[in-house]
Structure formats: structure tokens, C-alpha cells
Simulated assay, not measured.
Amino acid sequence: MKHHFRNILGAATLGILLYSCDNKPKQETEEPAQEQVFGKTYQNKNVETYEIKNANGIKMKVTNFGARVTHLWVPDKDGNPVDVVLGFETLDEYLKSSEKYFGAAIGRYGNRIANGKFTLDGEEYTLPQNNNGQTLHGGPGGMDYVIWDVEKSGENALIFTYTSPDGEEGFPGELKVKMVYSLTDDNEFKVTYEAETDKATPVNLTHHSFFNLSGAGNGNVLDHTLKLNASNYTPVNDVLIPTGKIESVKGTPFDFTTATQIGERIDQENEQLKFGGGYDHNWVLDKSGSELTQAAVISSPQTGIEMEVWTTEPAIQFYSGNFLDGTIKGKGSKVYELRSAFCLETQHYPDSPNQPNFPSTILEPGDKYEQTCIYKFGTK
């Protein structure tokens, strides 16, 4: 990171609109409230938003519906705040959208599980199939679609907790999850995860913000330059389930070991690109343990905003927004066109419960699941 940020957003909090599920303004206030009613879910639980900020002008809004990041403002190379995540202004839009993962916490199992089935300790478990016959991101009732309990911790952090009951979305065991979102004065959006279970169960939690470092809704991300610290990836079949192989990226469009524009090779004739409609694959990071290491660096030539991704996980999913198609209008009525965002989801490998040669994702009773993911911002 080449420049330090200055506090350019100021301390004033703008007026807040309170929304019901029909999206009609109910009340306006000039009070500097940090929480606001966002709507009511179909579960008839209040959905609220929370605001946190750091000392350098980075500010974030988050809702307890799926622990979603709805806004994330970071300064560009000229010091102007840019909202770099896709999303909506109201709950109703999140509920109706064809893209349900904007900004969400993902669990119990990020990415795909083949055929919605796995066997653990001799027992077969069946999960809801919600993606071409596979289970994606924990199923349709995953952690992106629940109401989390939230506690503020100062001006710069939120503590999320959720207890997933035994059998939720077909997974065994009661799983207690704690996540902390914080904006550090090192310009990091930091996510820490903890989880415990009373029965052996797969766990693979991740974060699913759709980023555009040129600004949400400001064109595609094909001009973004990406470096991945990964010499290998896991190729997939035509429904995006790993084949079980771990292959070198050398000589393929998947080689981002040196900084390369996302759009440079995305339309090459390649079976793996065809299966994903672009990039939607798991890269195996160049690391051997669970130490916190840099996984990726990505930047926009338009704003000069650069983002580093750090993780304790062994892998990262890079998704190039291939299923955004121009039919979704987001914040400010901006259209989210094809490849107008990227995702960098730190994780264990997809379908690990069915792939014995992949690192295990099974959490046992008495053990604690712990993971850290950091998105660090600067300019270049």
C-alpha cells in the first residue's frame, strides 16, 4: 500500500430513512443513530442496519439479515469516498433479487457439495439442492438468509452470533458461530470466525461481498489487475464440482501468479472457462499451514484503489461475476451488468466432504473452528 488515508468522510451522520418491507418511508430523523430498521423478514423478525468506521475515512454499513455488508466506502487515489460493494438499499430488494449472496456471510458450507449428499461416520446426510442438483453455500436456508444477533464493539466493530440447530439444511449437530467484523486503523476490513459443534459436521465459512473497486455499478471489472499467490487450482466438471485433481495453473488462463488483467484471457477457448462462464474456481494457495498469509492483490486503474486479501485458509475462490446479466438494479438504480463485480472468497476446497484427498472440513465436538480473513485497502 503506497498511501495512507486521511479522514475524508467526516463525522456527521446523514439522516436515516426507516423502511418497512413495502419500501415506503415511514419516518425521517436527523439523529445520529447507528442502527436503523431495515424491514421485516418473512420470519417477522426485525432487520436492522449498523454503521462502523475507522479513523482514516473507511465506513461500512451492515445488516443483521445474513450479516450482509450493504455499503463499504473507501477513499480513492484523490481522497474521494467510493462504495466498492454491490448491494441494495432495502430488504425487499435483497429478498426478491436473483442474486441472493450480495455481501453475505456464507455457511454452514461455502461453495458446492456434490449432489447435496455426503457420508460422515457411516451415516449419509442429504441436503437441499439449490444449484444444478448441487448444494451451494449451505443451501437455500443457509446463514445468508438468517437473522444474526449483533452487538456493537466501539465505533469500528460488530460481533455477530448465530446458533444453527441440529439438522438445519440437513447438516448434523448444533453449530454455534461467532463472527467479528472490524475496520482497523490499518485500513483492513477484518473478519474473524469461531464455531463449535456438539456433533461432527462439515464447516466451511466464508464472506461473499461482490467488489468493484471502480465503484458499485460503474461498469465491469475486466480492467482490474489481479495477482493470486496460487500455483495450483482445482478443475471442475460441467456443474462446477471439483474433479478431485489439483493442477498447475502454468500455461493456462488460470495463471495469476503475476499481476494480470481479469479480462485478458477470460474469453479464451478453454473448457474450464466454458464450464464457469468465466472464472468461478478454487485456487490452492502457496502455503502449507494455517498462518495468516497474503492470498491476492487486486486494483482498479480508474480509482487507484488496491485491495489485498489475507487469510488463514488454504484456498480462495475467484469469481468474475459471470451470472450478473444486466437485469439487476442496485444502489442508486445502477445496473449490475455482466462481470461488473468480482468475489474473492477465502475457504477450504469445494466438495471436501466427498473428496478424501482434499483437506478436511470436519469439525469435531470439543474442537474450535477458527479462521481469519482480511480485505486491506490502499491506493497505488
Rank of each mutant, 00 (worst) to 15 (best):
I147A: 09
H281K: 12
E337P: 07
D185A: 13
L72R: 03
G79V: 13
E99Y: 14
H208A: 10
D267L: 08
D325W: 00
A295Y: 02
A200C: 12
L205I: 03
S352N: 01
A315V: 13
K24G: 08
T303L: 02
F256W: 06
P81C: 02
N357T: 12
L14E: 15
S153Q: 11
A296V: 03
G173Q: 02
I298V: 00
V85H: 05
A104Y: 09
M307I: 01
N56A: 09
R6D: 15
R112M: 00
Y145C: 09
K24L: 15
E188F: 04
G139Y: 07
E306T: 09
T303N: 07
P359M: 08
G330Q: 07
L292V: 03
G244N: 04
I159H: 14
Y50W: 11
K24Q: 14
I316H: 11
R339I: 06
L95R: 05
Y145L: 14
N357D: 15
P202N: 05
N46E: 13
G122D: 09
E48P: 03
P140H: 08
F211D: 08
K59M: 09
E194C: 04
N130P: 08
Q272V: 10
N7L: 01
T161I: 13
T197H: 12
H71M: 08
Q36I: 01
K274S: 15
K176H: 15
P356L: 12
S300V: 00
P314L: 06
E124C: 01
D286V: 05
T119L: 11
S20H: 15
K152P: 00
Q294R: 14
F318Q: 11
E30F: 05
K100E: 08
D22I: 02
D185Q: 11
I266M: 04
A296I: 06
T135Y: 00
V335Q: 13
V69I: 13
E28A: 12
Y50G: 06
